[in-house]
Simulated assay, not measured.
Amino acid sequence: MHKNLSRVQIKSADKGQVSAVFATFNVVDKDGDVTLPGAFEDGAEVLISSYQHTSWQGALPVGKGVIRTTDKEAILEGQFFMDTTAGRDTFEVVKQIGARQEWSYGFDVIDAESGMFDGQDVMLLKKLKTHEVSPVLVGAGVNTRTLAVKSQKEAARVNPATAYNAAIRPHETRVTTKRWNGAEVVAELPGDATIDDLRAVHAYVDPSKDPTQKTAYRFPHHHGVGGEANLRACLIGIAVLNGAKGDHGLSDPERKAVYDHLAQHLIDADRDVPELKAELGGALKYHEEAADVMARLDSLIERTSEVMALRRSKGKALAAPSIDLLEWIYEDTRTLRSLLDTPQEDAHREFARFIAANLTTGE
C-alpha cells in the first residue's frame, strides 16, 4: 500500500541528506486514516524510492535512511545516492521543487482496526511495516514537510545528533540586519496563525504548552511568516542562551538545539558565531560582551514599552528617575557612535552596509 503525504519545506544543499516528516499522528488524513503513535518502528531502515514510487516497478532506489519518531510525527533521516545519476537527479528535483514537494510512503499493515475519531468513521493504523519513502506529485497527509537537506558546510558546523524535540530545526532563508523588535514582530502575527506559521518565526516551542498559542514559542528571529531571519535577533538569542537575561530555563540539549538553529543563520551569512558557553556567567570576548549588552537593551526596550503602556492606561507618566536613567543610556549609546565616527570606520561601515544590502536582496 502507498500513503501520500503533502506539505514540504526544503533547504537547498548539495550533500544529498534529507530530513522529512512523512507521517503525523492522531489526525485524519485524506484517505480517512488515523496513524497512531507507535505505528512506526523507531530506527527502522527504509529505502528512498525513485520518483512516484517507481522502484516498485523496477526503477532503482535513489537513497536510503532510517525512521525517527516523536510523540507527534515520524521523520525520515535519509541519504540520497549522490554517486548515481538517479540519486543526484531525484535529489535535485526535490531541492528545486522546494515547498511544493510532496512525499509518500509504501507500507504493509501489521495491525489496524475500524473506529471513530473526532466523530468520523476511520481506519486506525496501529502498526505498519514501512518499505520505502518516495517524493511524489500529489499527497494526502496533514502537516508533513521536508525539514532539511544539508550541505557539507552545515554538516560540519551543526551536530546532527542534537535533540530537536522542542527546538525547531535549522533551515536556510534570507537574512537581514535591519532594526529588530521581537515584541512587535510577535504582536503583529495574526490571531489565526497556524502552528507552521508560529514555527516559521521562532526557534523554540515549549513542549508543555499548547503549540497553537503564541505563548508557547520563544526566540523569535524572523520578520513574520516567510520573512528574513534577523541577524541581530540571532545574536541576541545566543546571548540569552549564554545568560544575558539570567536563567533561560532550557535543558542542555534544548539549549544546544536552539543555538544550532540561530547559529546556522549566522553561518549562512558568513558571520562569526559567538561560542555557546559551557556555563552561564563565564568570561566574554569583546564581541560577545557587545551581543550581551544588545540582548539586555532589547529586554529593556520591551520592558519599557510595557511599563509606559501600563502607566498611560492609568493616566500617569514614567517616573522622573526612570526617565533620567533612559536618557543616560541614550547618551552612552551616542558616545559609542562617536567612537565609530572616523573616516576609516565610516568606510568600513559603508562596506558592511553594502554587504548587508546584498544579503537582504539576495543579489
Rank of each mutant, 00 (worst) to 15 (best):
F80N: 04
M123K: 13
T176G: 04
V142E: 14
P135I: 07
A203D: 01
V293C: 02
R296W: 05
I67F: 03
G362L: 10
D272V: 07
I168Y: 05
P61N: 10
V122D: 02
P343Q: 11
P207G: 06
R218F: 05
L47R: 15
H348D: 14
D268M: 02
A23R: 02
G32R: 01
R7L: 08
V142S: 07
R145C: 01
N159T: 04
L326A: 05
D89M: 13
K129E: 01
E41W: 01
I168P: 03
V28D: 00
E288D: 08
K3R: 14
D197M: 07
S50Y: 09
A357F: 11
S12L: 12
V34N: 00
S104R: 08
R145W: 09
R232L: 14
R271E: 15
T342M: 10
L300P: 06
L36W: 04
R271V: 10
A229W: 04
A74C: 08
L300G: 01
G281S: 07
T304S: 12
A263H: 06
D192S: 15
H2T: 13
T84L: 00
M308D: 13
D121Q: 14
D260E: 15
G227R: 07
A352C: 13
F91R: 06
A200L: 08
I110L: 12
E184L: 14
R7D: 11
D192H: 13
D210Q: 05
A167Y: 00
A309C: 04
F25L: 01
S338W: 02
T90H: 09
A216S: 09
L128A: 01
S104M: 06
G224W: 03
H248Q: 15
D341K: 13
W180T: 00
V93K: 15
T84G: 02
Q264L: 15
H348I: 12
V307R: 11
Y286D: 15
T342I: 09
L262F: 07
K256W: 04
D210S: 10
D31Y: 12
G191H: 05
W103A: 04
R271S: 09
M116P: 02
G226F: 09
F40E: 05
G58H: 08
S114A: 13
K150N: 13
V27Q: 15
P190S: 08
H202P: 03
Q96G: 03
G237I: 08
A347M: 10
L241W: 05
A161S: 13
T212C: 00
Y286Q: 15
A257H: 07
K11S: 12
L147I: 14
V28H: 00
L125T: 02
R68L: 11
A278N: 14
D298M: 01
D42I: 00
D292L: 05
P37L: 04
V307S: 06
M116S: 10
Q344A: 11
F354L: 10
A156P: 04
V258F: 05
E288R: 02
T90Q: 14
G58L: 06
T335A: 15
V133K: 06
R311Y: 13
P207M: 08
L262C: 03
E254P: 04
N159W: 03
